[in-house]
Computed example of a mutant assay.
Amino acid sequence: MRRQAKVMSGESAAMERDESQESQKLERVLLEKRWKERRARRFFRYISLTYTLFFLIDPILSHRRDAWIALAIAYPIFLLSFVVAAETRGRTRWIAYTVLFAVGYVYMPFNSSASGLFVYPVAMLPFILKKPRKALVAMGAQVSGMFLEMAIFGLNRWAVCVGVFFVVVITLTNLYYAEQERSNAKLKLANEEIEHLATVAERERIARDLHDLLGHTLTVIALKSELAGKLITSDPNAAASEIAEIQQTSRKALAEVREAVLGYRSQGLSAEVDRARKALATADIKLICDGLPNELPIAEETVLCLAVRESVTNIMRHSEATEVWMQFRFRDGRLHVTVADNGKGGVKEEGSGLRGMRERVEALGGRLSIQSEVGTQLTIDLPQGAATA
């Protein structure tokens, strides 16, 4: 009994360890994706500063010393305020925004080519203000202020109108992207809530299944053990018969638990492919699947589920692919599975995940091969056995 309990405990621990490792891998992939997105936003944010080269037009054409002095004073203040507004949060950020707006209004009369100063603060506001209406009000106030300043100081009408055009276009464009980001964030929260509820429901199902599976069996074992203990002195033959039945019942229970554990590790190949499709979609990768089997033996289905999971994780982490193809074919009494992508390829050595996949496939009498010259193609060849297409 102790040995059987240790086996059951070991299988349960292995299942939890595999699930934990897969969860950690997916979390690392998502973190890497978010970090790349942040780096991309930061890159484009600072590359937009190249447009400040237009601020030099007026000082160069006017040949006035005071124009260069005004630029030397205003530009460092603008640059510092821009960086602070982009990299900080809370009160400090709003102070930086106020300075950005003020620099635009103060410096514009000295340099008509610097109307772009008004673009930078309103371009970032849609991503900070939660309500689009506030960003539109800020844009309207900015445009009104620009026209008012043009009327008061007699500024170049063409330069001001160009600035107004870019303020309106960039603000509206960023409003669209900001709303899209918020919608994606809400969708992500909703998906996380659904996953949490599904996890809770799955735990409750496992608890019910284990109760139904082991409750009766363990009760029988306990009663027969008690009876054997009473009979061991008065009727040794009857006690031996009871002990034999206990061994038979415990072996049957162990087999049922093993089958249940395999079922818990995989909810089916179809469900695993659906999860793969959703995971790849988060990385903007399209999955095309063909010939998915309707039914497979538990052992083969579990191995293929783990193989699909490991392949998708590797594709998301390393491949830089945009499309993935999965194909399942029964041919000559064997099941042939292909997972291919159009990424950069270049797999030179197998990591622990691929080695574990190969060991599981070979344990079922199958073969696994990898080609990675152009993209990466993983091929699994398993004996068909009791599988049906």
Score class of each variant (00 low, 15 high):
residue 128 I to P: 01
residue 112 S to P: 07
residue 211 H to E: 14
residue 154 G to V: 13
residue 223 L to G: 07
residue 268 G to Q: 05
residue 272 E to Y: 01
residue 47 I to P: 01
residue 272 E to V: 09
residue 244 A to Q: 13
residue 282 T to Q: 13
residue 280 L to G: 02
residue 34 R to L: 15
residue 132 P to C: 07
residue 388 T to L: 11
residue 126 P to V: 03
residue 13 A to R: 15
residue 224 K to D: 10
residue 153 F to V: 07
residue 133 R to K: 14
residue 141 A to L: 15
residue 302 T to A: 12
residue 115 S to A: 13
residue 326 M to N: 05
residue 57 I to K: 11
residue 323 E to W: 07
residue 287 L to S: 06
residue 63 H to R: 14
residue 334 R to T: 01
residue 133 R to S: 05
residue 113 S to Y: 03
residue 255 A to M: 09
residue 101 F to T: 00
residue 256 E to M: 13
residue 384 Q to Y: 02
residue 308 V to N: 05
residue 252 K to P: 00
residue 342 N to M: 03
residue 127 F to P: 00
residue 161 C to Q: 15
residue 215 G to F: 07
residue 50 T to W: 10
residue 89 R to T: 15
residue 248 Q to W: 00
residue 218 L to C: 09
residue 60 I to M: 13
residue 120 Y to L: 04
residue 239 A to D: 08
residue 285 I to W: 03
residue 106 V to F: 09
residue 279 A to T: 13
residue 308 V to C: 10
residue 24 Q to F: 06
residue 232 I to R: 12
residue 265 R to S: 07
residue 302 T to F: 08
residue 96 A to S: 08
residue 56 L to S: 04
residue 340 A to Y: 01
residue 54 F to E: 04
residue 343 G to S: 09
residue 323 E to S: 10
residue 284 D to I: 04
residue 193 E to S: 12
residue 20 S to L: 11
residue 337 V to C: 11
residue 201 A to C: 06
residue 48 S to Y: 09
residue 300 E to I: 12
residue 174 N to D: 06
residue 233 T to I: 09
residue 302 T to I: 00
residue 120 Y to K: 06
residue 126 P to F: 01
residue 272 E to I: 03
residue 22 E to I: 12
residue 229 G to N: 14
residue 195 E to R: 15
residue 258 R to W: 03
residue 208 R to G: 02
residue 357 M to P: 06
residue 360 R to Y: 07
residue 388 T to K: 13
residue 40 A to N: 10
residue 145 G to W: 00
residue 205 R to A: 11
residue 145 G to R: 00
residue 39 R to S: 11
residue 237 N to R: 14
residue 235 D to P: 04
residue 210 L to W: 04
residue 127 F to G: 02
residue 366 G to E: 02
residue 176 Y to G: 08
residue 292 L to H: 05
residue 50 T to F: 14
residue 68 W to A: 06
residue 310 E to Q: 12
residue 337 V to L: 08
residue 158 W to N: 07
residue 114 A to L: 05
residue 43 F to D: 04
residue 292 L to G: 03
residue 108 M to F: 08
residue 209 D to I: 05
residue 169 V to M: 13
residue 214 L to C: 14
residue 59 P to W: 06
residue 305 C to L: 08
residue 166 F to V: 03
residue 114 A to V: 02
residue 25 K to H: 11
residue 298 I to S: 11
residue 23 S to P: 03
residue 350 E to R: 12
residue 310 E to P: 01
residue 374 V to D: 14
residue 147 F to A: 10
residue 36 K to R: 15
residue 63 H to C: 09
residue 319 S to C: 11
residue 121 P to Q: 01
residue 291 G to P: 04
residue 260 A to L: 15
residue 286 K to E: 15
residue 130 K to F: 01
residue 145 G to F: 00
residue 13 A to V: 12
residue 100 L to G: 03
residue 163 G to A: 06
residue 73 I to C: 07
residue 109 P to V: 00
residue 182 R to W: 02
residue 258 R to L: 12
residue 12 S to H: 08
residue 16 E to F: 10
residue 159 A to N: 10
residue 299 A to F: 11
residue 388 T to Q: 14
residue 246 I to V: 15
residue 18 D to P: 02
residue 182 R to D: 06
residue 67 A to Y: 01
residue 319 S to F: 03
residue 335 L to Q: 01
residue 233 T to V: 14
residue 199 T to C: 12
residue 202 E to I: 03
